[in-house]
């Protein structure tokens, strides 16, 4: 194999890179496009199935006080620190809000926040998760920028923050799953309503969570390689950019999981 120059009669005739990208980075873009198709198929399936169920009507819940710590104690006498689901779900099933026909409103399902037992706090925790992921995307792109300047120390610093952000997000997701599972949800059963809701939740957030997990592993590999001076020796920090592309993609997917699963 030699580095002979092939005659460049036109951009697309070989011998140069039409996109002005290295092989690895172009392949990362193509992989991300195919991965975007995979996630799109999940979200398209979710959208179609979710709208084949009627939604929870506002009139069903506006008369209910959803802060269960204070007022449902008398009715269920479980004590203030009993698990949220223990009286919340039976009460809402009794009120006819959670049933097998209507799709449960996500703000009635994901309304927990750590250390705030029994309070109805919809969307707050998942917004925090979104913030964590956006922040870790920012630290990643700062690492990429440091790599473009060849600043090894700064790359280490920002990669470490990105890894911490990734673990923080995964921990939040583990907490969210734990709440949902201890309430009795499995891929084939759902105390909040139709079982399909739980199945799709586990499938889509699980698939995304696995991407985050793989991203954290890749980030750790890049972090260690950088500490060992691999990229300094190689003369460029393109590997940081490639892994960064993947990490931003994971953030991008979360933007849409957040939109379709929690907002809509």
């Amino acid at each position: 194999m030699s580095t002979q120059t092939i005659s460049k009669s036109s951009t697309w005739r070989g011998g140069n890179s039409p996109f002005k990208l290295s092989y690895g980075k172009l392949m990362m873009w193509i992989f991300l496009l195919s991965d975007a198709f995979t996630f799109s198929s999940l979200l398209v399936g979710y959208g179609a199935i979710r709208y084949s169920f009627p939604s929870t009507e506002i009139s069903q819940i506006e008369s209910l006080d959803l802060h269960f710590a204070e007022n449902v104690q008398d009715k269920f006498a479980n004590g203030a620190d009993a698990h949220h689901g223990e009286h919340f779900i039976p009460a809402l099933r009794e009120a006819g809000v959670f049933n097998e026909i209507q799709w449960p409103s996500p703000d009635l399902v994901f309304n927990h926040f750590p250390f705030a037992h029994g309070l109805h706090l919809p969307l707050i925790f998942v917004s925090l998760m979104t913030l964590i992921l956006i922040l870790s995307s920012v630290t990643m792109v700062l690492g990429v920028e440091a790599g473009q300047r060849g600043d090894k120390k700064a790359v280490s610093k920002w990669m470490l923050w990105t890894i911490i952000g990734g673990f923080a997000f995964l921990s939040c997701q583990a907490w969210e799953w734990t709440n949902f599972i201890t309430a009795g949800a499995t891929p084939w059963a759902n105390p909040y309503g139709p079982p399909t809701f739980a199945a799709l939740f586990f499938l889509v957030t699980g698939f995304h969570g696995f991407h985050v997990f793989s991203g954290v592993l890749l980030n750790i590999i890049v972090y260690i390689n950088n500490l060992r001076g691999t990229y300094e020796k190689r003369g460029h920090y393109e590997m940081v950019e490639k892994v960064g592309l993947y990490w931003h993609f994971v953030d991008l997917v979360w933007v849409f999981v957040f939109t379709f699963f929690y907002l809509i």
């Binding site: 194999m1 120059t5 011998g15 890179s17 002005k20 990208l21 290295s22 092989y23 980075k25 393109e238």
Partner: peptide, 8 residues
């Protein structure tokens, strides 16, 4: 240009 090593 050598596709195996070239980076812009």
């Amino acid at each position: 240009y050598d596709p195996t090593v070239w980076v812009p």
